[in-house]
Computed example of a mutant assay.
Amino acid sequence: MTKRLHGVIAPVLTPFNDKLEPDVERFIAHCRWLVDNHAGLAIFGTNSEAASLSVGERLSLAQALVEAGIPAAMLMPGTGACALPDAVELTRHATRIGASGALVLPPFYFKGVSDDGVFAYYAEIIERVGSGCVPIYLYHIPQLSQVPITLGLIERLLERYPGTIAGAKDSSGDWKNSKAMIDNFATAGFDVFPASESLLSQALPIGGAGCISATVNMNPAGIHRLFEGWQGPEAAKLQAKADAIRTIFQAAPMIPAMKHVVSSFAAHPSWRRVRPPLVALGDAAGGEVLARLDAAGFDMPGYPRRPQ
């Protein structure tokens, strides 16, 4: 049986080369650094610019990680897509490589769809992948998808596929919703991951499974210490430090800001690249983010320090 991921998980940033193609070497290196700092890998999440990646790119990047020796058990690939066959292909591949789970966004082009339609989408994926389907994590990000994962939908899916529906990432930013997911379904083995480390101190005491947070890309060790130490004497201090770092990134366009900072620590300007329609952070804005991080004592151990 596939061992489930818990704890601190990064929706991994995707580096691009000068042709705006995924930079496989730097992608592998970033993933290895994250794993070394106790983070799981939700490759092809929102912060991976997954909606800007083709199916072929996602398949080849996932395969490259496994072939590079990144443990498949650390992977939770994003496999959702507007086209059902694409979602099936991606989920089938996640199953084949032995990933710990698949984070599955609902189809997001049509709006106002019913729970019946979303249920059918997830059911078709599970049925078409067949026996041994990778555990499915529902991706609730209604501010972008406009297709919510409702409590009623979760209940129906758990009743039909209790061995396959494993949990959810709640990116709504609404603590009441995350709490309701945990309160209603955690005892049924449904693992709920809020999308911010700022909610760890609230989620873990009531049965939350951890967090899948953008800024795990930047602060994996610090957020892992918070996850491990939430009941300890340093819990409030660890939470405050993690919150301070996240607040700095939230004050800027997060994906360009994170890539700008990685670029600085990696001493490689290409890390700044984003795929259109996103736009890279300019030098002035990027410098402001770096200055605020310096003042907060931020570091990325294992990445080369930026030149002084």
Rank of each mutant, 00 (worst) to 15 (best):
D115E: 15
E228L: 13
I126S: 12
S131V: 06
A195S: 11
A214F: 14
L153I: 09
G207M: 08
S178V: 12
P220R: 04
A240G: 07
P220M: 07
P233T: 03
I165P: 14
S198G: 11
D170H: 10
K176T: 04
N219W: 10
P135K: 15
M181C: 06
S172G: 15
T247M: 03
A214P: 01
Q231E: 06
L238Q: 08
R246I: 09
P162V: 03
L138F: 03
R160P: 01
S114L: 06
Y121A: 04
Q202A: 07
K241H: 12
V216H: 13
I149C: 01
N219Q: 13
A209F: 10
I149K: 13
Q231R: 14
N217D: 09
G207K: 11
F190A: 05
A242L: 00
F119D: 02
K169G: 04
P205F: 04
V147F: 15
L138Y: 10
K179M: 13
G117E: 14
G232P: 03
G130V: 05
G208Q: 07
L200A: 07
A168S: 15
A242G: 09
A166Y: 06
C133A: 14
H140T: 02
I245W: 14
Y161G: 15
L226H: 12
G167D: 13
D243H: 09
I126P: 14
I154T: 14
